[in-house]
């Protein structure tokens, strides 16, 4: 089964096109990273899936239930939401409730029995080291603590599909590590995780599939390995060379940029270090320094966004 299917989703905010025919496909059991620059429509996509934002047209299917087809089916949406956990982008919680009260009232929405709610709340709070602070008001929490509580409130109903909007904002490195661990555990249990981010380093490590959204359209959707390979093949291999005198690289077929005195950036589709050496030495020059830069997802991302 496919966890999320989005077809030709369109959404306008007044006269701004937020989603412009978005198509998305998230198979079950995947960790899907949803990337895009600020304002690309990541949050709008997520909120549309949950019915928080009302799209103009298109189709959304969640966990095999058609929740939107040019209009919401509230019954299906409610059924789907029973099995979905959602973590909103902004650390918004009820400031005057304690973590225990927050989890209790949210658990009530899923009609979890009282005893089980308490048990689950304890498990979740211990998981993110908030058990000590269980009776403090959330209003007094730091951003990181709120973020952790926001994450576990999404897990209260043991969801089959976890939707996270910029989950790692405001977390310290330890928090990020914990977070990644939790996500991996979800995957081990066969659950689907869909999360948006604009920080690629986060996505690169945990996700197995990535989708890149730019101006309301999906520009790229593939596994990270595939994306990297393809990028390299399209001339994404970068070599930095510094020589002792000017070298002419014309006729090699590479894209060469000059950066400062005798420094060159060579873009090729494969590892051409030996040929670079040949070209340089054939012109009587010497290589002072040569570096290969494997493209990071960041670069690919920026390239796509352009």
């Amino acid at each position: 089964m496919t966890a999320i299917i989005i077809e030709d989703l369109k959404k306008m905010y007044k006269d701004v096109k937020a989603l412009d025919g978005l198509n998305l496909n998230v198979p079950e059991g995947r960790i899907y990273g949803f990337l895009g620059p600020n304002g690309a429509g990541k949050s709008t996509t997520i909120m549309s899936m949950l019915g928080i934002v009302r799209p103009n047209s298109g189709r959304i299917e969640l966990l095999g239930k058609e929740v939107f087809n040019d209009g919401f089916s509230e019954g299906n949406l409610v059924k789907a939401k029973e099995r979905i956990g959602y973590m909103p982008e902004h650390a918004t919680l009820w400031d005057f409730l304690t973590p225990l009260q927050t989890l209790d009232i949210i658990g009530l929405a899923y009609r979890i029995p009282k005893m089980e709610r308490a048990k689950r709340a304890r498990e979740l709070l211990e998981m993110v080291d908030l058990w000590e602070d269980r009776n403090r008001k959330v209003g007094k929490f730091s951003k990181g603590m709120r973020q952790k509580l926001l994450l576990v409130q999404a897990l209260i109903n043991d969801p089959d599909l976890l939707i996270l909007d910029e989950p790692m904002n405001g977390l310290d490195p330890k928090g990020i590590a914990e977070f990644k661990e939790i996500i991996r555990r979800q995957k081990d249990e066969g659950k689907t995780v869909f999360f948006s981010s604009h920080i690629l380093a986060h996505v690169e490590e945990v996700c197995d599939t990535v989708g890149v959204i730019v101006r309301g359209k999906l520009r790229l959707e593939d596994t990270i390995d595939n994306i990297k390979r393809e990028f390299l093949e399209r001339g994404g291999y970068v070599i930095l060379v510094e020589t002792n005198k000017p070298v002419d690289f014309t006729g090699t077929g590479w894209k060469v940029e000059t950066r400062g005195e005798n420094r060159y950036v060579i873009r090729a589709s494969s590892d051409v270090r030996e040929r670079v050496y040949d070209v340089v030495s054939s012109q009587g020059a010497k290589i002072l320094q040569m570096k290969v830069r494997t493209p990071s997802l960041e670069e690919i991302f920026l390239k796509v966004v352009e």
């Binding site: 928080i52 509230e74 409610v78 939401k81 959602y86 909103p88 918004t92 919680l93 949210i106 899923y110």
Partner: peptide, 16 residues
């Protein structure tokens, strides 16, 4: 405005 509405509406509850 505060954002808690998103937290509420992501639960299995009909809008109306």
């Amino acid at each position: 405005r505060k954002g808690t509405m998103a937290l509420v509406m992501s639960r299995p509850v009909k809008r109306r």
